[in-house]
């Protein structure tokens, strides 16, 4: 049987000014699988996401990515242009702040279409119809296609970022607190969208969140981080319902039941 692993981190370590941000971290992700990385602020979640996505070089360890042809690539040994191309095609990144990803002075439709153009699509009519389709999928009205993102609400911006990210049908998406800072009602809608789109398109996701309920709703597997280490990992419902590590027990018992 061929090894299906899509992304694999081994022995990842990283320090900032003497502070350990990551230590001895191993991560594997399969196609179509959603892995949630949870832990409090400063536990190393975002550092891990940045290292896995090639945005930050680790001090130790290696990150492997298997491309559609089955070839393994050492993410941190890739030439910068190749990595950039990967980020624009096979991969996607959803930031907590959509402004980091969107171009605020380009129309909503342009923001979605731009990713397609970067992949070589040139036909204006095709680009516009795909953009319209994606705006509909993230529940943005068609008559907003020519509006600039700066007139959008926070929830709409986040949905636009998701459309922009998914339009190229990436196989792997990194998400950093995608629902952070949004109202609960807006959050619910976004969670439902992410859940259905990811399942339908069979996208693999590494999701960083401090919200355990979000992890439970979306993720197949979960990794709990504390002080740069993964202290517990497994099936999401197992880890949350039968936590073993003292820190996971603290995390789970600290959540209020609504």
């Amino acid at each position: 049987m061929t090894d299906p692993t899509l992304l694999s981190g081994r022995g990842l370590g990283s320090t900032f000014g003497g502070v350990t941000a990551l230590a001895d971290v191993d991560v594997d992700l399969w196609p179509g699988e959603m892995l949630a990385v949870v832990g409090e602020s400063g536990s190393g979640k975002t550092t891990l996401l940045n290292v896995l996505s090639g945005r930050l070089m680790p001090d130790t360890g290696v990150v492997w990515y298997r491309d559609p042809s089955g070839t393994l690539h050492d993410v941190h040994a890739m030439p910068a242009p190749v990595l950039r191309t990967l980020h624009r095609s096979d991969w996607g990144f959803v930031h907590q702040d959509p402004r980091q990803n969107l171009r605020m002075n380009v129309s909503a439709g342009g923001n979605v279409g731009e990713r397609l153009m970067a992949q070589g699509e040139r036909h204006y009519g095709n680009i516009r119809s795909v953009a319209l389709d994606w705006l509909a999928q993230v529940e943005i009205d068609a008559d907003r296609i020519d509006d600039l993102p700066r007139v959008f609400s926070g929830g709409m911006l986040q949905r636009l970022q998701i459309a922009r990210t998914l339009v190229t049908h990436p196989r792997l998406v990194f998400m950093d607190e995608p629902t952070g800072g949004l109202d609960v009602s807006v959050q619910a809608r976004l969670l439902d969208l992410i859940r259905s789109l990811v399942a339908r398109l069979q996208i693999a996701v590494v999701l960083v969140t401090h919200d355990i309920a979000v992890a439970r709703l979306l993720a197949h597997r979960i990794a709990v981080m504390q002080r740069g280490r993964i202290v517990e990992t497994g099936l999401t419902d197992q880890v949350l319902d039968d936590p073993r590590h003292p820190y996971t027990q603290l995390l789970v018992s600290s959540v209020l039941n609504a």
């Binding site: 497994g234 099936l235 419902d237 197992q238 319902d241 039968d242 073993r244």
Partner: peptide, 9 residues
């Protein structure tokens, strides 16, 4: 029952 489902380890 939860152990049989793999919910408890």
């Amino acid at each position: 029952l939860r152990s049989l489902y793999g919910n408890y380890r």
